[in-house]
C-alpha cells in the first residue's frame, strides 16, 4: 500500500486536478452556439486555449515544478500540452463529464471541418482508454507523468525533471495494483497508452495545417 508521503502526494495531486474547470462561458458556447463547421471549429479552438491555461494552473501545483529552470518549465508545457489535452478529452468522453456535453462535443468535433483521417484515430484512442476503466486518480497521475517527461525537446536539466516524475510513477504503479488487482499488466498498459498519445503531437500539427488549407 501507499506510504504516508505517497498518500499525501496523491491527495495533493487530486486536489489540484479537481480544481480544473472549463470557464463557464466556454461550456455555455458548447451548448448554445450555432452548429456551423466554422462555429464548431472556433469552439474547439477556444476549448483548446482554455485547456492550456487550465493545464498550466495544474502544472504550477505539481510538487517541485516551480523549482525547475523557467525555460525548462516552458519546454515541458510546450512538449506535453497536446498530449495532456487528448488525455483530458479521453477522460471527458469516458467519464461523461459533464453530463450530456460529451455527445454534443463529439457532434461538434465531427462537424468542424477537421478531416476524418484525424477524427478517427482520436475516437479510437478514447475507446482504447475506455477499455482500461481508469479511475480519476489514474487520469490525474498519468497527466502529471506526461507533463514531467524528461525526454521533451530543449530540456536543459533532464535529471531534475526525472526526479519529479519518478515518485509519481511509483504511486501510479501502486494504484494500479490496488484498483486493478485482476490485471497485473494494467500499469504496463497505461504506459503503453502514453506511446499512442505521442502520435497525437504529429497528428495535431498536421490537422491544424490541413484545416488552414481547407
Amino acid at each position: 500500500e501507499l506510504t504516508p508521503e505517497e498518500q499525501h502526494l496523491l491527495h495533493y495531486i487530486m486536489d489540484s486536478y479537481n480544481k480544473q474547470r472549463f470557464p463557464p462561458e466556454v461550456s455555455k458556447k458548447l451548448l448554445q452556439e450555432a452548429f456551423t463547421a466554422e462555429e464548431n471549429f472556433l469552439i474547439l479552438t477556444e476549448m483548446a486555449t482554455s485547456h492550456v491555461q487550465v493545464l498550466v494552473e495544474f502544472t504550477k501545483r505539481l510538487p517541485g515544478f516551480q523549482t525547475l529552470d523557467h525555460e525548462d518549465q516552458i519546454a515541458l508545457l510546450k512538449g506535453s500540452a497536446v498530449e495532456a489535452m487528448f488525455l483530458r478529452s479521453a477522460e471527458i468522453f469516458n467519464r461523461k463529464l459533464p453530463e450530456g456535453h460529451a455527445d454534443l462535443l463529439e457532434e461538434r468535433i465531427r462537424n468542424s471541418g477537421i478531416s476524418d483521417e484525424y477524427i478517427t484515430p482520436m475516437f479510437q484512442f478514447y475507446k482504447s482508454m475506455a477499455e482500461l476503466k481508469m479511475t480519476q486518480e489514474e487520469y490525474a497521475l498519468l497527466t502529471a507523468i506526461v507533463i514531467l517527461s524528461p525526454d521533451r525537446p530543449y530540456i536543459q536539466d533532464r535529471d531534475s525533471v526525472e526526479r519529479l516524475q519518478e515518485p509519481l510513477l511509483g504511486v501510479l504503479q501502486k494504484i494500479c495494483k490496488l484498483y486493478h488487482a485482476e490485471n497485473p499488466q494494467h500499469f504496463a498498459c497505461l504506459l503503453g497508452r502514453l506511446t499512442e498519445l505521442r502520435t497525437f503531437n504529429h497528428h495535431h500539427a498536421d490537422m491544424l495545417m490541413s484545416w488552414r488549407v481547407n
Binding site: 474547470r21 470557464p23 486555449t49 492550456v52 491555461q53 487550465v54 498550466v56 494552473e57 504550477k60 523557467h70 518549465q73 516552458i74 508545457l77 510546450k78 500540452a81 495535431h204 500539427a205 491544424l208 495545417m209
Partner: peptide
C-alpha cells in the same frame, strides 16, 4: 508551425500571470 507559436505565448502568459478564478 504557427500553432506552436500561439501555444508558447499562451503558456508564457499563464505561467507568469494566473488565470485562477
Amino acid at each position: 508551425p504557427a500553432s506552436n507559436l500561439g501555444l508558447e505565448d499562451i503558456i508564457r502568459k499563464a505561467l507568469m500571470g494566473s488565470f485562477d478564478d
